[in-house]
């Protein structure tokens, strides 16, 4: 039983904006992938970023991570401007995608060391964090195993831990639970909650609609626009739907 489950809900959400997006537009030729997106994410919040395939989620995430320029709009991520301070943005965020960001032919420890090095941690820091990580995840025995030889659920938990190794202000999770078994999926969300409790803002996409209900707030994109944004409870009420799955289907089919 992880300790954070005993603490009250997500009390760490603050009124401070950690992401501010005003009128974000991204065009590819004449195609408008992001059409005047405007939203804020609060520090410490678990923010669900949902949408149908092709709705423009990945485009927006790439921009927020400093990997692609918007066509127009004002954006600040972790307190930095997305046009002029992209390297600062990258230093202050973590990223994990469904396809593992870990190297299959490096060991567990080597992966931690590699990412620690990339983020400029000192060897001493890396070693102490690697040590506490192994203890926390309960895989001391796997320290010198190749990533390709450890179970999927372990990889996923390790990939998440590595994404927040440098204690970023925000972590972006792009379909982090794809393909894992239902028990591991729930353990993974325990980890997300723990990260949020330490003050890390979590920006997450998922196709599992029950996971949308674990978020503090959820935005749903349809054809390049944000069609709805609110707490899961309010969205269910607003769309007169018993579950987020039905909210999603009502919006995306409309």
């Amino acid at each position: 039983m992880p300790h954070w489950l005993y603490s009250p809900g997500n009390m760490t959400v603050t009124s401070e904006n950690i992401i501010t997006v005003k009128n974000l537009v991204k065009k590819f030729g004449s195609f408008v992938a992001n059409d005047r997106l405007t939203f804020e994410v609060k520090k410490g919040e678990i923010f669900g970023f949902l949408g149908a395939n092709g709705a423009g989620k990945t485009t927006a995430i790439k921009i927020l991570c400093g990997l692609s320029y918007p066509t127009s709009g004002e954006l600040s991520v972790a307190g930095f401007d997305i046009y002029t301070q992209r390297e600062k943005v990258k230093q202050n965020i973590g990223y994990m995608s469904q396809r593992f960001s870990l190297y299959d032919d490096l060991t567990v420890y080597e992966n931690i060391r590699f990412y620690g090095g990339i983020y400029g941690l000192l060897k001493k820091e890396i070693d102490s964090r690697a040590h506490s990580l192994m203890l926390q995840l309960g895989f001391e025995s796997a320290r010198n195993k190749l990533i390709r030889d450890i179970p999927l659920g372990w990889k996923q938990k390790l990939a998440f831990s590595v994404a927040i190794l440098h204690n970023p202000k925000i972590v972006f999770l792009d379909e982090p639970t794809g393909g894992v078994d239902p028990i591991t999926r729930r353990q993974f969300w325990d980890m997300i909650y723990e990260a949020a409790h330490t003050g890390i803002t979590v920006f997450v996409t998922t196709h599992y609609m029950d996971e949308a209900e674990y978020c503090d707030r959820v935005s749903i994109m349809v054809e390049g626009r944000i069609a709805a944004l609110d707490t899961p409870d309010n969205l269910k009420q607003q769309f007169d739907a018993p579950s987020m799955n039905e909210v999603f289907i009502k919006l995306a089919r409309a």
């Binding site: 469904q98 289907i249 995306a252």
Partner: peptide, 10 residues
């Protein structure tokens, strides 16, 4: 249907 949104899955 892996990686496919809820509507397309339906």
């Amino acid at each position: 249907t892996t990686g496919v949104d809820a509507v397309s899955r339906l």
